[in-house]
Design a protein around this nucleic acid. Structure first.
Length: 453
DNA sequence: TGGGGTTAT
DNA sequence: ATAACCC
């Protein structure tokens, strides 16, 4: 399977703090003013190794030496590296995994609570996505103390990078970035006991892709002079983040399969086939060009909880499933601290063809007299009210007088608003992210302090 | 094929 | 509301 799993991409960089973080005005300036300097930034991408498996091995160290798979329904969603030596991979059927490795130990990973907690420890919050750091400003502080070698692996011929091809100072910045990445990884290991990979380069695309060259628990650095060779070496157009199942299929339909195919395809042809904006984006990405800024972490815009199952055919079952979903979601909402403006119910029906990706949803606003009263004390009452609302949404989705067969239900809170004492003050000053004294954050701060003094 | 998330249309 | 993408 080519799809990878969320647990490998775990934390977002923290936000409001320190020299490490750019303010939005800096990001705008970078995009407008300096964007003609292609290597002006230094970006690190961090990717935790088989995260769910690592969490379970921390909880139960006996599992470290055994082949371990994390199970969700009848799938191994991830596994440790002992299991991988037997040929077990991510998103493999339990049946196939057991065939490859009969002694495989399975731990259920359907409840994400533990993973969320560890994730929060790693970065004050889980970032099931954007684990990038823009360390440009940090490495600039360290320029007077240049290491002689790169930390970790280097992609390509390292002797060529030094020979004055680029005078923008990118070599020094990226070199320093590699050492910063090594320190961050060491701190993560020491303080949390978790291993990860890192990629270091001058944009998000390259940092992410190059980090996958050496796994697990290693890091790889990519300098500008090796970028053409690196991109051309990637096997498929599908390797580009942003080219998923659907786009890859369209591309293949007119003969674009490899990365080189994509590089050589004319922009006009590409635009005609997949639309202007996507064409421009992935054409640039295919050459390693990516000016997307690292986005500061912010709280998620939705909180959702879902369950899949073989069958759910009666209103009674629906009621029970919704009750369970709402209950756990409500706990998370209270912990989050915000109030939900709307609820959404999503279902998946059993259907012969179109096996996946047939979801239907209905949403509605939550009456304000319900949401503002939410607290730890009256959660039960609120849950009851929410159940009524969800059942009415369900009746809009499904004609219960006819037979139905569901295989998934999802409940989501969206339109999340910060609680504010002064009625609608949040309307004028949207939620800003506070907090943040994370492992990484502290580490970086002490780092820059010791360096600037 | 799981249990989450985001963005664009 | 859906469809695409990400992990």
């Amino acid at each position: 399977m080519e799809d990878s799993n969320d647990e490998d991409e775990l934390w977002k960089e923290p936000v409001t703090d320190t020299t490490l973080q750019k303010r939005e005005t800096d990001i705008e300036r970078d995009q407008v003013g300096d964007s003609h300097l292609p290597h002006r930034r230094t970006i690190i991408h961090i990717d935790v190794d088989c995260f769910y498996a690592q969490v379970e091995m921390i909880r139960n160290p006996v599992l470290r030496d055994k082949p371990l798979g994390i199970q969700q329904k009848n799938i191994v969603v991830t596994c440790n590296y002992v299991a991988r030596e037997f040929g077990v991979t991510k998103l493999m059927y339990i049946k196939d995994a057991k065939e490859k490795c009969p002694q495989l130990v399975l731990v259920s990973g359907e409840d994400l609570t533990n993973y969320r907690n560890v994730s929060n420890r790693i970065s004050e919050r889980l970032g099931m996505d954007e684990n990038y750091l823009d360390v440009t400003d940090l490495v600039k502080l360290k320029k007077d103390n240049l290491p002689s070698t790169v930390a970790g692996h280097v992609f390509g011929d390292s002797t060529q990078h030094k020979s004055g091809m680029c005078t923008c100072g990118c070599y020094e910045r990226i070199l320093l970035g590699s050492h910063l990445a090594a320190e961050i990884r060491a701190a993560l290991h020491k303080e949390i006991g978790i291993t990860c990979c890192a990629g270091i380069s001058y944009n998000k695309l390259l940092a992410k892709l190059v980090g996958e060259q050496h796994k697990p628990n290693q890091q790889t650095t990519l300098f500008p002079s090796s970028v053409p060779a690196f991109m051309a070496k990637l096997p498929k157009a599908r390797n580009i983040p942003g080219v998923g199942h659907a786009t890859a299929r369209k591309l293949a339909d007119f003969g674009v399969v490899t990365m080189v195919d994509l590089q050589q395809c004319s922009l006009e042809d590409l635009k005609r086939e997949i639309g202007d904006s996507l064409a421009v984006t992935i054409k640039e990405l295919s050459e390693g060009i990516d000016e997307n800024p690292v986005i500061p972490y912010s709280k998620p815009q939705t909180l959702s909880d879902e369950d899949s199952f073989k069958s759910c055919c009666s209103v009674k079952e629906v009621h029970q499933k919704l009750r369970d979903l709402i209950k756990s979601l409500m706990i998370r909402l209270v912990e989050d601290g915000r109030l939900a403006g709307t609820v959404r119910l999503t279902i998946r029906r059993l259907s012969a063809e179109n096996k996946y990706m047939n979801r239907e949803s209905k949403q509605c606003n939550i009456p304000s007299h319900i949401i503002t009263k939410l607290s730890k004390d009256n959660q039960q009452q609120i849950c009851d009210k929410m159940e009524d609302i969800l059942m009415s949404l369900f009746n809009k989705l499904v004609d219960v007088r006819k037979p139905f067969h569901l295989t998934l239900m999802n409940v989501a809170f969206c339109n999340l608003m910060e609680r504010s004492k002064n009625s609608i003050s949040h309307f004028f000053s949207p939620p800003k992210n506070q907090n943040l004294h994370t492992t990484i954050d502290k580490h970086c701060r002490s780092n820059s302090r010791s360096n600037s003094t």
